[in-house]
Design a protein around this nucleic acid. Structure first.
Lengths: 175, 175
DNA sequence: AAAAAAAATGAATAAAAATGCAAAAAACAA
DNA sequence: TTGTTTTTTGCATTTTTATTCATTTTTTTT
């Protein structure tokens, strides 16, 4: 999907560098081959919860409040969460399989992402049950996991994205 | 001073209620007898580090990122810090006197306010030495303490504000 | 106290961001 | 697939916010 890719890119750019206007962000995105209008950005930034904060030097910069911001937190962040094997939707819930033993760490990471979409998780040894909040669809959770775990779509093995498709009635897409 | 009063009022309003535009804030201030233009507000908000964040319900609200925000933190806040006796400037530093025994708690509070202006504090039993960061004036620290400790100017005894005036060369005012 | 310097402010305007609406794209049902 | 519904998007415009410049106020120096 076009939008998810863009949201991910926006998040990365904003966390990684100092962006002070939507025009500037627009150009950065263009540099990455992602083209859209300022109107779309405005909407996307709102969805991501991004705000424009005074940078203390007389200017402004976009920031993902609450979430970790590379330029503010000193400690290096592990951005790639390894060991994720698959991601499947089932009856409104999601099941994530990991390599043995790492389910807990991964679940912990997901829990602490602070994403509204996820009500909670239950982790075994190599399996995590991800419980979406009421009114949140499987696809929204998927999009949100993509945001939390940058490499996700590249990490999941062949069958991954395929098994994600779940037939279901009357659910809304990300919005 | 006019500006300090306004900054305090802005901070209070923003923390206390949902304000979504400078126009709205302008009216709230007018309600409190404080009149200025949107231009001034824009500058003040930047100085206070206030940002406009998506409220998750499709709208926006102003917020003092980093600092405690009543509507987000559940725990009740002690807003009045009692026991402050006086506040005096001395050679680029500030000395705050408290009732015996409460210097430490007050210093702790000041330390944790997260204000840029204050480099640190040293507390005895009834006296606190407040050390401003380089380039910060006594007056800036005073203004900043007013912000941290809402009732300050009303708490200090007669001689308080008077003793604050310190002759010094080449220092800048709050800006 | 008077002069000089710095800071704060408002009016007007520029810049930036948000939104209504219609069209296009994607997801879904049958 | 094909028709139907939902979501996404761009364009044009409005709304909101930032800034420039001139002036006033405050602070500092002499």
């Amino acid at each position: 999907m076009q939008k998810t890719k863009r949201l991910i890119a926006i998040e990365r750019i904003i966390v990684g560098e100092n962006i002070s206007s939507q025009e500037a962000l627009l150009k950065k995105l263009k540099g990455k081959g992602i083209i859209c209008t300022q109107a779309t950005l405005s909407r996307n930034l709102r969805q991501l919860g991004v705000s424009r904060v005074p940078d203390g030097k007389g200017g402004y910069r976009y920031s993902l409040a609450g979430r970790n911001d590379a330029s503010y937190s000193q400690e290096p962040k592990l951005n790639v969460l390894p060991g994720i094997r698959s991601l499947t939707g089932a009856g409104g819930l999601m099941v994530m399989k990991t390599i043995p033993g790492s389910a807990n760490a991964t679940a912990y990471f997901i829990d602490n992402s602070g994403r509204y979409e996820i009500a909670g998780t239950i982790a075994g040894d190599d399996t995590i049950l991800i419980i979406p909040r009421d009114g949140i669809t499987i696809n929204q959770v998927h999009a949100c996991l993509e945001l939390i775990i940058p490499g996700l779509h590249r990490q999941i093995e062949p069958s991954g994205p395929g098994t994600l498709k779940v037939k279901q009635r009357n659910i809304r897409k990300q919005n």
